[in-house]
Design a protein around this nucleic acid. Structure first.
Lengths: 144, 144
DNA sequence: CACAACTGTTGTATTTTGCAACTCAATAAC
DNA sequence: GTTATTGAGTTGCAAAATACAACAGTTGTG
C-alpha cells in the first residue's frame, strides 16, 4: 500500500478510536469533551493565552472564551492577568485541574498501552522511531 | 520517550493538523465537514446502512439521518431500499458523490504527500511497515 | 494626543447533536 | 392467524457547540 494511503487509514483509525474513547471514557470526569481538550492543552503548555489556546484547538476565540469561562467556574483553571501587560491573561491549571489532567492522562495511557499490546515486541522500537519521525513531520507542517 | 507518549503526541498532532485542514480545505467543495466524513465512509464501504454509518462515525442515528437527508438532497448519495426487506436502506454514492469523494481524496492525498516529504527517503519503508502495524492494532481494538 | 493593533468578551444566529417518542416493516410467539 | 416484539429509520425537541460581528479595554506608534 502507498504510504499516503497508510496515513489516511491511520487518520481514520484514530478518528474512530478516539471518537469512541471520548464518548465512553472521557466524559466520566464531569467535564465535556471540549473542556477536556482545553485542560490537556493548558496542562501541556503550563500557561497559555486564550488566543493561543483557541489556535491550538482550531476554535474561534469566542468559543474558546466561553469554554474557558466554564473551566474557571468549575475551578479547573485560573485566569492570571499579566501585571506587566494587562491585555494578557495567562491560563493555567489549578490544583483541581491538575488532578483532572492526570485522570484524563490515565485514561489515554491505559488506552494506548492496550493498543501497544497488539504490536509485536520486536517491532516496538522500530514503530517508536517511526512515530517520532511522523510526529515531527506533522508538527513541521503548517500549510493551512 | 515512551511509546505510549508517542501515540498521545501522534493523536494530538493528527487532531490539530486535520482540524486545520478540514476548516481550510475541505469545506471548499460545498459540503460541510460532517457531510464530507459521511461521503468518505460511504465511498469506502461501497454501500452501507444508516445505522452502520452512524456507528462508524460515532454519531447518533438521528444525527446521521439528518446528515444523510442533506446528502440526498444535494444528490451526492442515493437511498436504495432493499426490495427483499423494505426496512433496509442502502446508502451509496451517486455519480456526483463519487466526484466529491475524489475531490476530498485529492485534498487528503496532497496533504499527506506533503507530510511524507519531511520523512527521510531511507526511512519511509520502515515508517510504512510501522504504520501498518499500528493501523492493525487500532482497528483490532474495540474496547469502548 | 490620536490612531492603529491586539486580547479578550458579549450579543446573536446558526449548526450540530442526542434523547425520546414515533412509524413502518419483518419476525417471533402463542 | 392474530398479537407481540424487534429492528431500521424519522421526527420533535431541547441542549450544546460554534462562528461572526461588534464591542471594551490595553498597549504601542506616529
Amino acid at each position: 500500500m502507498e504510504t499516503v494511503d497508510l496515513l489516511r487509514n491511520l487518520m481514520r483509525a484514530f478518528d474512530k478510536n478516539i471518537g469512541a474513547l471520548e464518548k465512553t471514557q472521557l466524559a466520566c470526569c464531569g467535564a465535556t469533551i471540549g473542556q477536556c481538550h482545553a485542560v490537556m492543552e493548558i496542562g501541556l503548555a503550563g500557561q497559555i493565552s486564550l488566543i493561543d489556546l483557541a489556535n491550538v484547538l482550531n476554535l474561534d476565540k469566542s468559543t474558546m472564551s466561553r469554554t474557558v469561562n466554564a473551566l474557571v467556574e468549575n475551578e479547573w483553571i485560573e485566569r492570571i492577568t499579566d501585571p506587566e501587560n494587562r491585555r494578557y491573561v495567562k491560563l493555567m491549571l489549578s490544583q483541581k485541574g491538575q488532578v483532572l489532567h492526570e485522570q484524563i492522562s490515565s485514561v489515554l495511557n491505559a488506552y494506548f498501552r492496550n493498543i501497544m499490546k497488539d504490536i509485536p515486541e520486536n517491532k516496538r522500537e522500530q514503530v517508536a522511531e517511526s512515530l517520532e519521525l511522523l510526529i515531527n513531520a506533522l508538527n513541521k507542517n503548517n500549510c493551512c
